[in-house]
Design a binder for these strands. Sequence first.
DNA 1: ACCTGAACACCGTTCAAGT
DNA 2: ACCTGAACACCGTTCAAGT
Lengths: 225, 225
Amino acid sequence: MSGGTLAARPKSSYKPDVPRRPRATRDTYHHGDLRNALVAAAVELVEGSSPEELTLREVSRRVGVNHRAAYRHFADKTALLAAVAEDGYRELLVAMQSALGELPARAKAAERLMALAVAYVAFAVDQPARYRIMFGRRLNEDGRFNALEELVARAYELLAAELKAGQLSGQFAVTPVRELVFGFWSLAHGFASLAIVRRLKVKRALLEPWSRQVFGPFLSGLSRR
Amino acid sequence: MSGGTLAARPKSSYKPDVPRRPRATRDTYHHGDLRNALVAAAVELVEGSSPEELTLREVSRRVGVNHRAAYRHFADKTALLAAVAEDGYRELLVAMQSALGELPARAKAAERLMALAVAYVAFAVDQPARYRIMFGRRLNEDGRFNALEELVARAYELLAAELKAGQLSGQFAVTPVRELVFGFWSLAHGFASLAIVRRLKVKRALLEPWSRQVFGPFLSGLSRR
DNA sequence: ACCTGAACACCGTTCAAGT
DNA sequence: ACCTGAACACCGTTCAAGT
């Protein structure tokens, strides 16, 4: 072998069968989109373990890249977490929207909100680690990740629109919408969180009926007397 | 100075003015109750920073003891966190009980639950880091900390008793109590958590009126039609 | 019994370099 | 531009010792 600085290779390389197809300029570069590859690896890593085990170094290893390479795309670890959370909020929005989409056109306001609740809780419980990243630490403390904030605002608006519609159609009592959104979201978030930490021991198959029972009083409390 | 192994002392010792009063057997030992000193230091450390910054080494430093000494009293870091959480649950129980105690004797069931809700949320928001330790990671995963579980059960029973009483007195509709407890706790936990992460931006002074607005629909949903 | 020291395998992050 | 290597200051945890 050649002597000098090139000789030493790491003993466990973590990249089993990378074909090493020759590339135009160099072959050690990562293919096109390292940023997305890192986010995808992070999401995959965190599920089936826990948020604590998500490390920049391990994610980089999985992608087959030096851990320093990640810093090209993320200023620090928090930035990676924010990207993972952002992804999650996007999926959560989709899940809520499609839950509404599956409802019959003339579903009552309370039914629509119930469908949202069920979808929300199911999303959280099905990917608990990611959900904890989304709602655990405050990621946007220094205001760097406004995309995150924007997605949260969209979820808020979705809920607000449903509650407002229920009031306009005369099904719900007219009270300040902001507080109602907060209440609804608190209930959904609290139920999901407690289920994830197992303070509530709910079997996955019974999650939907449980959700309905838990949201029952709140939704019936909204309706006009 | 003397040569050999005793010469080297750490440069920054973190114990500024410890009097070093002579003790009977040895003077390097920690006074009586190292265990409680560590828990107290941990609680103090974690508030005003964040759960992430709670390290075994920093806590030991604060108490003025080698970090290895902590292992005499806690099998690992999780055990220390569990002790901090346990302490928190005890205080939470006291807060809830005294909230009930301050109520007039003939307060309605809904008022009693509202008082519990307000006390719960205030507790959480006033010591957010500790609250996050109590409800963040699952600490009792391997079943080592049953005292923790026992305290959670007592909080559960407190809520269950209030709900049951409301049903027996005819103020609440009779539905399964378990689901009601879960709903109430979910709402309280969710509201507290979202307030802590600032997903809900609630000023401390407005926390109580907000709590009342948020719990309003839920509690009125409990009452008989 | 209670505490310490040195060592190990991990982190995140910075600096200086390679192509 | 994009990636790497060595180094730094931290962790939690283990092993072997000190009094």
